[in-house]
Structures are given as structure tokens and as C-alpha cells.
Design a protein around this nucleic acid. Sequence first.
DNA 1: AGATTGATAAGG
DNA 2: CTTATCAATCTT
Length: 177
Amino acid sequence: MAKRLGRRYFCQPADMLAEDLVGKLLCRKVDDEILRYRIMETECYYGEEDTACHASKGKTERTKILYEKGGTAYIYICYGMHFLFNVVTGREGHPEAVLIRGITGYNGPGKLTRIMKINKELNGEDMVNSDRLWIEDDGCRFPIRTDKRVGIDYATPEYRDILWRYIADDGEYRPAK
DNA sequence: AGATTGATAAGG
DNA sequence: CTTATCAATCTT
């Protein structure tokens, strides 16, 4: 039986959640229709000290969402044309989040937001209470492999090379790139 | 390898 | 105000 993830869950550290969210069901309701897709790939962004994290330059109009409580949706436009979707994690006041990079059938962070109609309207949505966007656990588990994060060459070496990308390794899923 | 696309953040 | 940059994707 699938159960919805609550506040306690989202308040765990981002590196733990990034790994644990692989296999969970990302749920989106639009026009009384519920879309459910399984999360197959994530990345962890952790704190102002993580030079790949948007919050590494401190709190701004855009990044203030990262400082919200765990379970908040952080959505922003990348390269002028793609929405990228993150789940804020950890304790309120500490900027950390998990980027959802892939779901079954649609690999790539900009593709899944298009398919699931996730847009900037949902930036700041509280996924613990929302009836538009939430995550469920139906008990599904995958073996996980890790890799370096994608597209963050601007980060300092110790954070550029850290293995904070988590990929479902079920022999089926093939990540983009 | 190149085009696309517009928000964001920093600088004058 | 201007400008460079960007957690990507598609086409050639």
C-alpha cells in the first residue's frame, strides 16, 4: 500500500534522501487526473559550503526557497527553457535539496518536468500538504549506483567530484548522457 | 559542435 | 541599466 511521505521524512539530510528517493513515486494532480512516475535518478545539493549548490552564494530572491522546511518544492528555469525540480530537505534555515533527474521513461531533469506539467507555479509548494504535488512510497527498492553530479563544472574540485548522483541500477534504466 | 532561451546575479 | 552565466535538450 503506497503511503505518502511526511514532514519527518523530508527533514532528513539531503545525501540520505537523494539515495532513498530513488524508487519512490512522484505524484502530480492536474485537472482531477493523477500522474504517477517512479523516480529513477537524483542528485544531492548540500548547504552554502557546497560550491555546486545555488545557495553557495548565500540567500537571494531565487534561493530563499532552499532555506525553507523539508518537503518544499524548489523549481527554477534552467537555460531559459527547462524547469528543474528539487525537493528541499533537512532542517529549516539550512539550504539543501534533492534534484530529481530522471523518472521511468523520461531521463533528464528538464524532460520529467515537462511530462508532469511541473512549472514555476509550484515553486514553494509544500509537498507534505499539497493536493497538486506529493511523493509516495509503495515499498519499491532498487540497487543504487553513484556518480559525479552533472553540469556543475563551475564548482570547486572537491565538490565537483563528490559522488552525489544516485542512479537506479536495475539493468533497465539508462540515464541521459 | 551549435542553436536555443530567458531568468538570475553581479557590476557600472 | 548591461552583461555573463547557467543543476539542459534537440538538431546537425
